[in-house]
Design a protein around this nucleic acid. Structure first.
Lengths: 193, 193
DNA sequence: GTCTATAGATCGATAGAC
DNA sequence: GTCTATCGATCTATAGAC
Protein backbone atom coordinates (compact mmCIF):
# COMPACT_ATOMS: atom_id res chain seq x y z
CA UNK A 1 0.00 0.00 0.00
CA UNK A 2 2.27 2.78 1.25
CA UNK A 3 5.56 1.55 -0.17
CA UNK A 4 4.46 -1.51 -2.11
CA UNK A 5 7.84 -3.15 -2.36
CA UNK A 6 8.61 -4.42 1.12
CA UNK A 7 5.64 -6.73 1.43
CA UNK A 8 6.37 -8.24 -1.93
CA UNK A 9 9.87 -9.21 -0.93
CA UNK A 10 8.81 -10.62 2.38
CA UNK A 11 6.36 -12.94 0.67
CA UNK A 12 9.00 -13.81 -1.88
CA UNK A 13 11.21 -15.15 0.90
CA UNK A 14 8.52 -17.49 2.20
CA UNK A 15 9.05 -20.44 -0.18
CA UNK A 16 12.76 -20.70 0.60
CA UNK A 17 11.96 -20.18 4.27
CA UNK A 18 9.40 -22.98 4.22
CA UNK A 19 11.83 -25.32 2.53
CA UNK A 20 14.52 -24.85 5.19
CA UNK A 21 12.00 -25.47 7.95
CA UNK A 22 10.84 -28.60 6.16
CA UNK A 23 14.37 -29.93 5.93
CA UNK A 24 15.55 -29.16 9.44
CA UNK A 25 12.43 -28.64 11.53
CA UNK A 26 11.89 -25.64 13.76
CA UNK A 27 14.58 -26.33 16.33
CA UNK A 28 17.07 -27.55 13.74
CA UNK A 29 16.78 -24.45 11.59
CA UNK A 30 19.29 -21.77 12.54
CA UNK A 31 19.29 -18.18 11.38
CA UNK A 32 22.48 -18.77 9.43
CA UNK A 33 20.75 -21.61 7.55
CA UNK A 34 17.85 -19.28 6.88
CA UNK A 35 20.19 -16.53 5.77
CA UNK A 36 21.88 -18.86 3.29
CA UNK A 37 18.64 -20.30 1.98
CA UNK A 38 16.91 -16.98 1.46
CA UNK A 39 19.98 -14.97 0.46
CA UNK A 40 18.99 -12.35 3.02
CA UNK A 41 21.22 -11.06 5.80
CA UNK A 42 20.08 -11.15 9.40
CA UNK A 43 19.36 -7.45 9.24
CA UNK A 44 16.90 -7.93 6.40
CA UNK A 45 15.36 -10.95 8.06
CA UNK A 46 14.65 -9.08 11.28
CA UNK A 47 13.37 -6.19 9.24
CA UNK A 48 10.80 -8.46 7.61
CA UNK A 49 10.14 -10.56 10.67
CA UNK A 50 10.68 -8.51 13.86
CA UNK A 51 9.48 -11.48 15.91
CA UNK A 52 12.41 -13.59 14.75
CA UNK A 53 12.25 -17.28 13.98
CA UNK A 54 8.84 -17.75 15.54
CA UNK A 55 7.28 -15.05 13.36
CA UNK A 56 8.97 -16.57 10.32
CA UNK A 57 7.39 -19.93 11.06
CA UNK A 58 4.05 -18.30 11.67
CA UNK A 59 4.25 -16.59 8.28
CA UNK A 60 5.20 -19.87 6.63
CA UNK A 61 2.25 -21.62 8.27
CA UNK A 62 -0.13 -18.92 7.06
CA UNK A 63 1.33 -19.24 3.56
CA UNK A 64 0.90 -23.02 3.60
CA UNK A 65 -2.65 -22.65 4.85
CA UNK A 66 -3.47 -20.22 2.06
CA UNK A 67 -2.09 -22.62 -0.53
CA UNK A 68 -4.05 -25.57 0.80
CA UNK A 69 -7.14 -23.46 1.05
CA UNK A 70 -6.98 -22.56 -2.63
CA UNK A 71 -5.67 -25.84 -4.04
CA UNK A 72 -7.26 -28.45 -1.77
CA UNK A 73 -9.87 -27.29 0.75
CA UNK A 74 -12.02 -24.97 -1.33
CA UNK A 75 -12.20 -27.30 -4.37
CA UNK A 76 -13.29 -30.12 -2.06
CA UNK A 77 -15.98 -28.04 -0.44
CA UNK A 78 -17.41 -26.78 -3.72
CA UNK A 79 -17.01 -29.97 -5.71
CA UNK A 80 -19.76 -30.60 -8.26
CA UNK A 81 -18.24 -34.06 -8.88
CA UNK A 82 -17.01 -35.58 -5.59
CA UNK A 83 -15.10 -38.47 -7.15
CA UNK A 84 -13.26 -36.13 -9.48
CA UNK A 85 -12.50 -33.75 -6.61
CA UNK A 86 -10.99 -36.58 -4.59
CA UNK A 87 -8.84 -37.66 -7.51
CA UNK A 88 -7.74 -34.06 -7.99
CA UNK A 89 -6.86 -33.75 -4.30
CA UNK A 90 -4.68 -36.83 -4.47
CA UNK A 91 -2.88 -35.52 -7.54
CA UNK A 92 -2.20 -32.21 -5.79
CA UNK A 93 -1.06 -33.96 -2.62
CA UNK A 94 1.29 -36.26 -4.50
CA UNK A 95 2.89 -33.34 -6.31
CA UNK A 96 3.03 -31.10 -3.24
CA UNK A 97 4.75 -33.66 -1.02
CA UNK A 98 7.01 -34.74 -3.87
CA UNK A 99 5.88 -38.35 -3.63
CA UNK A 100 6.50 -38.34 0.09
CA UNK A 101 10.10 -37.18 0.03
CA UNK A 102 8.98 -33.72 1.08
CA UNK A 103 7.83 -33.52 4.67
CA UNK A 104 4.56 -32.08 5.93
CA UNK A 105 5.78 -29.20 8.05
CA UNK A 106 2.46 -28.82 9.83
CA UNK A 107 2.34 -32.45 10.90
CA UNK A 108 5.95 -32.30 12.00
CA UNK A 109 5.33 -29.21 14.11
CA UNK A 110 2.62 -31.02 16.00
CA UNK A 111 5.01 -33.69 17.21
CA UNK A 112 7.39 -31.80 19.46
CA UNK A 113 7.26 -29.56 22.46
CA UNK A 114 7.96 -26.71 20.05
CA UNK A 115 4.41 -27.07 18.83
CA UNK A 116 3.17 -25.08 21.81
CA UNK A 117 3.45 -21.68 20.11
CA UNK A 118 1.86 -23.09 16.95
CA UNK A 119 -0.70 -25.45 18.38
CA UNK A 120 -3.69 -23.51 17.14
CA UNK A 121 -2.74 -23.19 13.43
CA UNK A 122 -1.61 -26.82 13.40
CA UNK A 123 -4.91 -27.99 14.80
CA UNK A 124 -6.89 -25.74 12.47
CA UNK A 125 -5.08 -27.07 9.39
CA UNK A 126 -5.99 -30.67 10.06
CA UNK A 127 -9.50 -29.93 11.27
CA UNK A 128 -10.16 -27.95 8.12
CA UNK A 129 -8.77 -30.67 5.86
CA UNK A 130 -10.92 -33.32 7.47
CA UNK A 131 -14.02 -31.12 7.38
CA UNK A 132 -13.52 -30.22 3.72
CA UNK A 133 -13.01 -33.83 2.68
CA UNK A 134 -15.98 -34.97 4.74
CA UNK A 135 -18.15 -32.30 3.12
CA UNK A 136 -17.09 -33.55 -0.29
CA UNK A 137 -17.98 -37.10 0.66
CA UNK A 138 -21.37 -36.00 1.96
CA UNK A 139 -21.89 -34.32 -1.37
CA UNK A 140 -21.39 -37.76 -2.85
CA UNK A 141 -24.13 -39.24 -0.74
CA UNK A 142 -22.10 -40.53 2.19
CA UNK A 143 -23.70 -40.19 5.60
CA UNK A 144 -22.17 -37.57 7.88
CA UNK A 145 -20.68 -39.86 10.50
CA UNK A 146 -19.17 -42.17 7.92
CA UNK A 147 -17.89 -39.24 5.89
CA UNK A 148 -16.03 -37.82 8.87
CA UNK A 149 -14.59 -41.20 9.66
CA UNK A 150 -13.40 -41.78 6.11
CA UNK A 151 -11.94 -38.28 5.91
CA UNK A 152 -10.07 -38.81 9.16
CA UNK A 153 -8.63 -42.06 7.86
CA UNK A 154 -7.50 -40.50 4.60
CA UNK A 155 -5.87 -37.44 6.17
CA UNK A 156 -4.11 -39.57 8.76
CA UNK A 157 -3.15 -42.01 6.04
CA UNK A 158 -1.46 -39.29 4.02
CA UNK A 159 0.59 -38.21 7.03
CA UNK A 160 1.55 -41.79 7.72
CA UNK A 161 2.49 -42.30 4.09
CA UNK A 162 4.91 -39.39 4.35
CA UNK A 163 6.51 -40.73 7.52
CA UNK A 164 6.81 -44.25 6.16
CA UNK A 165 8.08 -43.43 2.70
CA UNK A 166 10.64 -41.00 4.13
CA UNK A 167 11.84 -43.60 6.63
CA UNK A 168 12.11 -46.29 3.99
CA UNK A 169 13.48 -43.89 1.38
CA UNK A 170 10.84 -45.34 -0.90
CA UNK A 171 8.64 -42.88 -2.75
CA UNK A 172 6.86 -45.80 -4.37
CA UNK A 173 5.26 -46.58 -1.04
CA UNK A 174 3.82 -43.07 -0.85
CA UNK A 175 2.21 -43.34 -4.26
CA UNK A 176 0.83 -46.82 -3.51
CA UNK A 177 -0.69 -45.71 -0.22
CA UNK A 178 -2.23 -42.65 -1.83
CA UNK A 179 -3.85 -44.81 -4.49
CA UNK A 180 -5.31 -47.08 -1.83
CA UNK A 181 -6.94 -44.17 -0.07
CA UNK A 182 -8.21 -42.73 -3.33
CA UNK A 183 -9.84 -46.04 -4.18
CA UNK A 184 -11.45 -46.29 -0.77
CA UNK A 185 -12.79 -42.74 -0.93
CA UNK A 186 -14.11 -42.80 -4.49
CA UNK A 187 -15.59 -46.22 -3.79
CA UNK A 188 -17.66 -44.67 -1.02
CA UNK A 189 -19.03 -41.79 -3.06
CA UNK A 190 -20.04 -43.86 -6.06
CA UNK A 191 -22.17 -45.79 -3.61
CA UNK A 192 -20.44 -49.10 -4.22
CA UNK A 193 -21.13 -50.18 -0.64
CA UNK B 1 31.21 -58.64 33.60
CA UNK B 2 34.23 -56.93 35.16
CA UNK B 3 32.46 -54.36 37.30
CA UNK B 4 28.84 -55.26 36.79
CA UNK B 5 27.38 -51.99 37.93
CA UNK B 6 28.13 -49.48 35.21
CA UNK B 7 26.22 -51.20 32.45
CA UNK B 8 23.20 -51.56 34.66
CA UNK B 9 23.03 -47.86 35.33
CA UNK B 10 23.53 -46.97 31.70
CA UNK B 11 20.56 -49.07 30.69
CA UNK B 12 18.59 -47.64 33.58
CA UNK B 13 19.02 -44.17 32.13
CA UNK B 14 17.61 -45.17 28.75
CA UNK B 15 13.87 -44.80 29.51
CA UNK B 16 14.24 -41.24 30.77
CA UNK B 17 16.58 -40.52 27.87
CA UNK B 18 14.06 -41.84 25.36
CA UNK B 19 11.30 -39.75 26.89
CA UNK B 20 13.24 -36.50 26.55
CA UNK B 21 14.05 -37.27 22.93
CA UNK B 22 10.38 -38.03 22.30
CA UNK B 23 9.31 -34.72 23.77
CA UNK B 24 11.88 -32.47 22.12
CA UNK B 25 13.28 -34.40 19.17
CA UNK B 26 16.97 -34.86 18.53
CA UNK B 27 17.86 -31.26 17.76
CA UNK B 28 15.59 -29.86 20.44
CA UNK B 29 17.06 -31.99 23.20
CA UNK B 30 19.94 -30.28 24.98
CA UNK B 31 22.38 -31.88 27.35
CA UNK B 32 21.00 -29.84 30.21
CA UNK B 33 17.51 -31.21 29.47
CA UNK B 34 19.01 -34.70 29.43
CA UNK B 35 20.85 -34.04 32.66
CA UNK B 36 17.65 -32.91 34.36
CA UNK B 37 15.58 -35.79 33.00
CA UNK B 38 18.04 -38.51 33.91
CA UNK B 39 19.35 -36.97 37.12
CA UNK B 40 22.88 -37.51 35.86
CA UNK B 41 25.55 -34.85 35.54
CA UNK B 42 27.31 -34.27 32.27
CA UNK B 43 30.35 -36.11 33.61
CA UNK B 44 28.33 -39.24 34.19
CA UNK B 45 26.57 -38.92 30.86
CA UNK B 46 29.83 -38.73 28.95
CA UNK B 47 31.15 -41.58 31.00
CA UNK B 48 28.23 -43.76 29.88
CA UNK B 49 28.06 -42.36 26.35
CA UNK B 50 31.49 -41.19 25.19
CA UNK B 51 30.01 -40.43 21.78
CA UNK B 52 27.75 -37.78 23.27
CA UNK B 53 24.21 -37.06 22.15
CA UNK B 54 24.46 -39.15 19.03
CA UNK B 55 25.49 -42.23 20.95
CA UNK B 56 22.68 -41.62 23.42
CA UNK B 57 20.15 -41.58 20.59
CA UNK B 58 21.69 -44.68 19.08
CA UNK B 59 21.36 -46.49 22.41
CA UNK B 60 17.76 -45.35 22.72
CA UNK B 61 16.98 -46.62 19.22
CA UNK B 62 18.52 -50.00 20.02
CA UNK B 63 16.46 -50.13 23.20
CA UNK B 64 13.26 -49.30 21.34
CA UNK B 65 14.04 -51.89 18.72
CA UNK B 66 14.59 -54.52 21.37
CA UNK B 67 11.26 -53.71 22.99
CA UNK B 68 9.35 -53.88 19.71
CA UNK B 69 11.13 -57.07 18.79
CA UNK B 70 9.96 -58.77 21.97
CA UNK B 71 6.50 -57.24 22.30
CA UNK B 72 5.39 -56.81 18.68
CA UNK B 73 7.57 -58.28 15.94
CA UNK B 74 8.35 -61.75 17.32
CA UNK B 75 4.77 -62.44 18.47
CA UNK B 76 3.53 -61.51 15.01
CA UNK B 77 6.01 -63.77 13.28
CA UNK B 78 5.29 -66.76 15.46
CA UNK B 79 1.55 -66.27 15.78
CA UNK B 80 -0.47 -69.49 15.94
CA UNK B 81 -3.65 -67.38 15.73
CA UNK B 82 -3.15 -64.45 13.30
CA UNK B 83 -6.34 -62.60 14.23
CA UNK B 84 -5.48 -62.77 17.92
CA UNK B 85 -1.92 -61.65 17.21
CA UNK B 86 -3.17 -58.61 15.32
CA UNK B 87 -5.52 -57.70 18.15
CA UNK B 88 -2.66 -58.10 20.62
CA UNK B 89 -0.41 -55.88 18.49
CA UNK B 90 -3.01 -53.13 18.46
CA UNK B 91 -3.41 -53.33 22.22
CA UNK B 92 0.35 -53.03 22.71
CA UNK B 93 0.58 -50.18 20.23
CA UNK B 94 -2.23 -48.26 21.87
CA UNK B 95 -0.62 -48.58 25.28
CA UNK B 96 2.90 -47.86 24.04
CA UNK B 97 1.98 -44.65 22.25
CA UNK B 98 -0.31 -43.59 25.07
CA UNK B 99 -3.30 -43.34 22.76
CA UNK B 100 -1.32 -41.23 20.34
CA UNK B 101 -0.18 -38.57 22.78
CA UNK B 102 3.26 -40.15 22.89
CA UNK B 103 5.25 -39.67 19.73
CA UNK B 104 6.98 -42.37 17.69
CA UNK B 105 10.60 -41.33 18.01
CA UNK B 106 11.69 -43.53 15.10
CA UNK B 107 9.19 -42.03 12.71
CA UNK B 108 10.06 -38.54 13.87
CA UNK B 109 13.78 -39.13 13.31
CA UNK B 110 13.11 -40.07 9.71
CA UNK B 111 11.60 -36.69 8.94
CA UNK B 112 14.50 -34.30 9.34
CA UNK B 113 17.98 -33.86 8.01
CA UNK B 114 19.15 -35.16 11.39
CA UNK B 115 18.02 -38.60 10.24
CA UNK B 116 21.23 -39.00 8.26
CA UNK B 117 23.24 -40.56 11.11
CA UNK B 118 20.28 -42.80 12.01
CA UNK B 119 18.91 -43.62 8.59
CA UNK B 120 19.75 -47.28 8.76
CA UNK B 121 18.12 -48.16 12.12
CA UNK B 122 15.07 -46.07 11.20
CA UNK B 123 14.64 -47.90 7.92
CA UNK B 124 15.22 -51.28 9.55
CA UNK B 125 12.57 -50.64 12.20
CA UNK B 126 9.82 -50.00 9.70
CA UNK B 127 10.91 -52.68 7.26
CA UNK B 128 10.89 -55.21 10.09
CA UNK B 129 7.46 -54.16 11.32
CA UNK B 130 5.94 -54.44 7.87
CA UNK B 131 7.61 -57.81 7.25
CA UNK B 132 6.47 -59.22 10.59
CA UNK B 133 2.88 -58.09 10.08
CA UNK B 134 2.86 -59.39 6.51
CA UNK B 135 4.17 -62.76 7.69
CA UNK B 136 1.36 -62.91 10.24
CA UNK B 137 -1.21 -62.14 7.55
CA UNK B 138 0.24 -64.80 5.28
CA UNK B 139 -0.10 -67.22 8.18
CA UNK B 140 -3.78 -66.31 8.05
CA UNK B 141 -4.05 -67.29 4.41
CA UNK B 142 -3.51 -63.92 2.80
CA UNK B 143 -1.50 -63.93 -0.42
CA UNK B 144 2.01 -62.50 -0.15
CA UNK B 145 1.53 -59.39 -2.28
CA UNK B 146 -1.73 -58.47 -0.58
CA UNK B 147 -0.26 -59.19 2.85
CA UNK B 148 2.62 -56.77 2.24
CA UNK B 149 0.24 -54.14 0.96
CA UNK B 150 -2.07 -54.46 3.96
CA UNK B 151 0.87 -54.42 6.37
CA UNK B 152 2.22 -51.27 4.74
CA UNK B 153 -1.16 -49.60 5.06
CA UNK B 154 -1.49 -50.50 8.73
CA UNK B 155 2.02 -49.42 9.74
CA UNK B 156 1.66 -46.15 7.85
CA UNK B 157 -1.79 -45.73 9.32
CA UNK B 158 -0.45 -46.01 12.86
CA UNK B 159 2.15 -43.33 12.18
CA UNK B 160 -0.48 -41.10 10.65
CA UNK B 161 -2.77 -41.68 13.60
CA UNK B 162 -0.05 -40.43 15.93
CA UNK B 163 0.57 -37.30 13.85
CA UNK B 164 -3.12 -36.52 13.52
CA UNK B 165 -4.19 -37.18 17.09
CA UNK B 166 -1.25 -35.15 18.43
CA UNK B 167 -2.07 -32.28 16.11
CA UNK B 168 -5.73 -32.32 17.05
CA UNK B 169 -4.99 -33.02 20.70
CA UNK B 170 -7.56 -35.77 20.39
CA UNK B 171 -6.55 -39.19 21.63
CA UNK B 172 -9.98 -40.48 20.65
CA UNK B 173 -8.96 -40.17 17.01
CA UNK B 174 -5.96 -42.41 17.61
CA UNK B 175 -8.07 -45.14 19.16
CA UNK B 176 -10.69 -44.90 16.41
CA UNK B 177 -8.10 -45.13 13.64
CA UNK B 178 -6.43 -48.09 15.33
CA UNK B 179 -9.74 -49.93 15.51
CA UNK B 180 -10.35 -49.32 11.81
CA UNK B 181 -7.03 -50.87 10.90
CA UNK B 182 -7.60 -53.78 13.24
CA UNK B 183 -10.93 -54.48 11.59
CA UNK B 184 -9.43 -54.33 8.13
CA UNK B 185 -6.56 -56.65 9.05
CA UNK B 186 -8.55 -59.24 10.95
CA UNK B 187 -11.17 -59.14 8.19
CA UNK B 188 -8.49 -60.20 5.74
CA UNK B 189 -7.20 -63.15 7.75
CA UNK B 190 -10.59 -64.64 8.53
CA UNK B 191 -11.07 -64.78 4.78
CA UNK B 192 -14.11 -62.56 4.79
CA UNK B 193 -13.22 -61.13 1.38
C1' DG C 1 16.61 -1.39 3.89
C1' DT C 2 20.74 -4.13 4.07
C1' DC C 3 24.98 -5.02 5.69
C1' DT C 4 28.83 -6.15 9.51
C1' DA C 5 29.95 -6.48 14.18
C1' DT C 6 28.86 -8.05 18.30
C1' DA C 7 26.27 -8.76 22.60
C1' DG C 8 24.54 -12.24 25.78
C1' DA C 9 23.01 -16.77 26.33
C1' DT C 10 23.35 -21.53 25.53
C1' DC C 11 25.13 -25.21 22.94
C1' DG C 12 28.04 -29.84 22.98
C1' DA C 13 32.00 -31.46 24.92
C1' DT C 14 36.19 -31.63 27.97
C1' DA C 15 39.31 -31.12 32.07
C1' DG C 16 40.43 -31.84 36.51
C1' DA C 17 39.22 -31.98 41.54
C1' DC C 18 37.60 -35.33 44.60
C1' DG D 1 32.57 -42.60 38.61
C1' DT D 2 30.53 -38.17 39.57
C1' DC D 3 30.83 -33.61 40.26
C1' DT D 4 31.98 -28.36 39.05
C1' DA D 5 34.22 -25.24 36.13
C1' DT D 6 35.06 -23.96 31.80
C1' DC D 7 36.41 -24.27 26.93
C1' DG D 8 35.34 -22.77 22.11
C1' DA D 9 31.63 -22.76 18.98
C1' DT D 10 27.19 -21.49 17.78
C1' DC D 11 22.82 -19.76 18.88
C1' DT D 12 19.13 -15.76 18.66
C1' DA D 13 18.80 -11.17 18.57
C1' DT D 14 20.37 -6.31 18.51
C1' DA D 15 23.09 -2.11 17.39
C1' DG D 16 24.95 0.92 14.39
C1' DA D 17 27.45 2.04 9.96
C1' DC D 18 26.19 3.04 5.39
Amino acid sequence: MSKGRTLTERSEALPALAEVFREHGFEGTSLSLISTATGLGKGSLYNFFPGGKEEMMRAVLADIDAWFDAAIFAPLEQAPDPAAAIAAMMREVEAYFRSGQRVCLVGWLGLGASRDPFGEPVKAYFARWIAALAACLQGGGVAESEATRLAEQAVAGIQGAIVLSRALGDDGAFVRLLRDHETRLTGAVTGRR
